[in-house]
Measured scan of single mutants.
Amino acid sequence: KLETFPLDVLVNTAAEDLPRGVDPSRKENHLSDEDFKAVFGMTRSAFANLPLWKQQNLKKEKGLF
């Protein structure tokens, strides 16, 4: 399991300012399950079932792209 970080560490943070080991294209993977659901309004599995373009739009909207 990946290390999780608080939302404010990941949202609207440039790649070079992210904690070590965080993939800038997969910031959402480093949210706790609770934060993930609070941000996206759905579970990880529901998010994973969305088309890629919709996932990317949601990530942009939430500052996690």
Results as ranks from 00 to 15, higher is better:
Leu52Ser: 09
Lys27Arg: 15
Leu50Pro: 00
Ala15Trp: 13
Ser25Ala: 15
Thr4Gln: 09
Ala14Met: 10
Pro6Met: 02
Gly41Leu: 07
Gln56Ile: 14
Lys37Gly: 08
Lys59Asp: 00
Gly63Ala: 03
Lys62Ile: 07
Ser32Asp: 07
Thr43Leu: 08
Pro19His: 04
Asp23Ser: 06
Phe65Ala: 15
Val39Gln: 03
Asp8Ala: 13
Leu52Cys: 15
Phe47Gly: 00
Gly63Leu: 06
Lys59Trp: 05
Asp17Asn: 13
Asn49Arg: 11
Asn57Arg: 12
Lys62Met: 08
Ser45Glu: 15
Glu61Lys: 09
Trp53Thr: 09
Pro51Asn: 02
Trp53Arg: 08
Lys1Asp: 13
Ser25Val: 08
Phe40His: 00
Lys62Glu: 03
Phe65Ile: 13
Leu64Asn: 03
His30Val: 02
Lys62Tyr: 08
Asn57Phe: 12
Ala48His: 13
Phe5Ser: 03
Ala38Phe: 12
Leu18Cys: 06
Glu28Leu: 04
Ala46Ser: 10
Pro19Leu: 04
Met42Thr: 02
Ala46Arg: 08
Ser32Gln: 03
Leu58Thr: 02
Trp53His: 10
Lys27Cys: 06
Gly21Gln: 08
Asp8Trp: 15
Glu28Cys: 04
Pro6Cys: 05
Met42Asp: 00
Phe65His: 15
Pro51Asp: 06
Pro24Phe: 05
Ala38Tyr: 12
Ala46His: 11
Thr13Gly: 15
Ala46Cys: 11
Thr4Ala: 08
Val39Asn: 03
Asp8Phe: 09
Lys59Gly: 01
Arg44Ile: 04
Asp8Cys: 13
Lys62His: 10
Asn57Met: 13
Thr13His: 08
Arg20Ser: 14
Ser32Tyr: 02
Glu16Arg: 10
Met42Val: 05
Lys27Leu: 15
Lys60Trp: 11
Gly21Ser: 09
Leu10Arg: 02
Phe65Met: 15
Arg20Asn: 14
Gly21Met: 07
Trp53Lys: 07
Gly63Pro: 01
Asp33Lys: 03
Thr43Gln: 06
Leu58Val: 05
Asn57Ala: 14
Lys1Val: 14
Asn29His: 13
Pro19Cys: 06
Arg26Phe: 12
Arg26Ser: 09
Leu2His: 12
Val39Lys: 01
Asn12Ser: 09
Glu3Arg: 06
Gln55Val: 01
Glu3Leu: 12
Ser32Cys: 06
Ala15Arg: 11
Phe65Glu: 15
Lys1Phe: 13
Glu61His: 07
Asp17Pro: 04
Glu28Tyr: 02
Asp23Pro: 04
Gln55Pro: 00
Phe40Gly: 00
Ala48Gly: 12
Asp33Phe: 03
Gly21Asp: 07
Gly63Phe: 06
Gly21Ile: 08
Arg44Cys: 04
Gly41Asn: 12
Phe47Asn: 00
Gly21Phe: 09
Leu50Met: 09
Asp33Asn: 08
Ser25Asn: 14
Phe40Lys: 00
Val22His: 04
Leu52Pro: 10
Leu2Ile: 14
Gly63Ile: 01
Glu34Phe: 10
Ser45Ala: 14
Gln55His: 00
Trp53Ala: 09
Lys27Asp: 04
Ala15Leu: 13
Asp17Cys: 15
Met42Lys: 01
Phe36Cys: 00
Asp17Trp: 07
Glu16Cys: 14
Ala48Asn: 13
Glu16Ile: 11
Ala14Glu: 09
Asn57Pro: 00
Ala38Pro: 00
Pro24Gly: 07
Lys1Ala: 14
Leu58Cys: 05
Ser25Arg: 13
Gln56Val: 14
Lys62Asp: 01
Asn12Phe: 06
Asp35Trp: 03
Ala15Ser: 11
Asp35Leu: 05
Val39Trp: 03
Ala38Leu: 14
Val39Ile: 09
Asn57Gly: 10
Gly63Arg: 04
Phe65Leu: 15
Leu52His: 10
Leu64His: 03
Gly41Glu: 11
Asp23Gln: 05
Ala15Cys: 15
Gln55Ser: 01
Thr43Gly: 09
Lys59Glu: 02
Ser32Arg: 07
Leu31Tyr: 01
Asp23Val: 06
Leu18Thr: 05
Leu2Met: 11
Ser45Met: 12
Lys1Asn: 13
Glu3Lys: 11
Lys59Cys: 06
Gln56Asp: 15
Leu10Gln: 02
Leu31Arg: 01
Lys54Thr: 11
Asn57His: 12
Glu34Asp: 13
Thr4Ser: 09
Phe5Lys: 03
Thr13Cys: 12
Leu58Ser: 01
Phe36Arg: 00
Arg26Gln: 11
Ala46Leu: 09
Glu61Asn: 08
Leu2Trp: 15
Lys60Met: 12
Lys60Ile: 14
Leu58Glu: 02
Leu2Val: 14
Lys27Ala: 07
Asp33Gln: 05
Gln55Tyr: 01
Ser32Phe: 02
Glu28Ala: 02
Val9Phe: 15
Gly41Val: 02
Glu3Gln: 12
Phe36Tyr: 01
Phe65Thr: 14
Ala14Thr: 12
Met42Asn: 00
Asp23Lys: 05
Leu64Arg: 03
Ala14Lys: 15
Gly41Ser: 07
Gln56Asn: 14
Ala46Met: 13
Asp33Leu: 05
Ser25His: 14
Arg44Lys: 13
Gln55Glu: 00
Phe36Leu: 01
Leu52Trp: 12
Val11Pro: 03
Leu7Ser: 03
Glu61Tyr: 06
Gln55Lys: 06
Asn29Ala: 15
Ser32Leu: 03
Glu28Ser: 03
Asn49Gly: 12
Leu2Glu: 08
Lys59Ser: 03
Leu2Ser: 11
Ser45Cys: 14
Leu64Cys: 07
Glu61Ile: 10
Thr43Glu: 11
Phe36Gln: 00
Val11Cys: 09
Val39Asp: 00
Lys37Arg: 13
Gln56Phe: 10
Glu16Trp: 01
Gly63Glu: 04
Asp35Asn: 05
